[in-house]
Design a protein around this nucleic acid. Structure first.
Lengths: 240, 240
DNA sequence: TAGATTGTTAATCGATTAACAATC
DNA sequence: TAGATTGTTAATCGATTAACAATC
């Protein structure tokens, strides 16, 4: 897939390190933030495929974007490449991983062990991204005590103590909509810093420090439905 | 929550209908498309709360956006409001629903009845958005024949015939990454028009008519992780 | 050295916001 | 009528793309 050059200056450790290559400055636009995980995925693939170097041009072709955008994006965080050479895949992958916090060992709990909670619990997604799933919680006596993905489901009455002791960073909310608001508030109180919310409610930031990522699967489905109908839709019109 | 005026011109059926209020013209930007499902959610809430009218100003406050943007967005599809009055909630909700295809009765199947597939199967999301879940498929003999969410899981060997006979519009892919590409190709061949892809693979459009919505839950998790570390991160730095 | 490709500045494009005339 | 609020045009802002000097 990728030719490997004999001389490999970047691999030799001289990849141009710019003054401010510290992770995540505050002035990064949301557009860039949203693209970072995608870079992470593509770089991981290249890394796993044994590719040593990649140019912005080549990566752009692979990802269906432009070389300009890639260079601009990476340069929000400092210079990760080398003129005349391109980017060292391992180095860049490491940098992006670090920026995204993969190396920070964030600790997460799942709150709500219904179908979706259990499905997430069994996913390799967390391990692949450096997130440790350390606890599962539910309110239902029928579920409490059961083992899911190697973890015993605990009752909600134990969550406060657990999160403090285990220094939980992230709570994954897979609970009914009505319970989301209060549960999020309680978790923030306990010291949880991030909420990954699957409840069909749009959580608003309670404290300035609390980060919330609302997942709306329904919105994604609807976008698909919109597109099915948007150009020369084959289903018959229903509106007057 | 909302005062209801005695005189209600829009409710009286005189809501200004613009020439081109047909659903979904092609020249709608992706930014607008992505916002549509969110409007749908908020309007549904207002509707369920019994609110009769709403101004762009009020809706903007509720949604945390601007009145200008709301008016611009709605006007991509024609004029749904009335000067001096605002928008009739029921009417607008109906219009947005229609634009999003809620009234088209799309038919969907779930391909892959693992944890995530079963979790989705049991979700009210489909019914709430006018999508009928008509079939479940899996490759594993242990799962085939079982009943999930009122539907019997069928083997993959029966999917082609089923999709043709049942006129399936959407296939929901909750299968392993490696199988996604081929399965999507096969489904497109069968006549499925939209793919909602949860496999951790970025499916590319095979035919111009095939619509694909890739869901990357991992990207969402990573964005949250990024934000946890982005401003005055409390976890210690790990990079040199 | 010459070629390649970055980092970065400038130009373009598109999306958001503001303003206001139209009109209910 | 007067007030309110839309639809729509104009102004602003930000993001993307292009260009090119720097340099490996």
């Amino acid at each position: 897939m990728e030719r490997i050059t004999g001389t490999d200056p970047a691999a030799a450790g001289i990849t141009g390190a710019r003054p401010d290559e510290s992770a995540s400055p505050s002035g990064v636009s949301d557009a860039v933030k949203k693209r970072l995980p995608r870079y992470f995925r593509y770089l991981r693939e290249l890394e796993n495929a044994g590719v040593r170097r990649v140019s912005s041009k080549k990566l752009a072709e692979l990802m269906g974007t432009t070389a300009s955008q890639i260079r601009q994006d990476f340069n929000c965080f400092g210079g990760f490449g080398q003129q005349g050479y391109g980017y060292n895949v391992s180095y860049l992958y490491g940098k992006i991983s670090s920026i995204l916090g993969v190396t920070k060992g964030y600790r997460a709990v799942i709150v709500g062990c219904g179908n979706l909670g259990r499905a997430l619990a069994g996913s390799p997604m967390f391990a692949n991204r450096g997130v440790s799933l350390v606890g599962l919680f539910d309110i239902s006596p029928e579920i409490i005590g059961k083992t899911v993905a190697g973890l015993e489901v605990a009752g909600m009455d134990r969550i406060a103590e657990f999160c403090r002791e285990e220094q939980v960073d992230i709570a994954i909310l897979t609970i009914p909509r009505d319970a989301a608001e209060d549960t999020a508030a309680m978790l923030a109180e306990i010291g949880v810093r991030g909420i990954w919310n699957f409840a069909n409610a749009e959580l608003k930031r309670l404290q300035p420090e609390l980060k919330i990522e609302n997942v709306h699967l329904g919105d994604s489905l609807m976008k698909l439905c919109y597109e099915l109908g948007s150009d020369s839709g084959s289903k018959t019109e229903d509106e007057t």
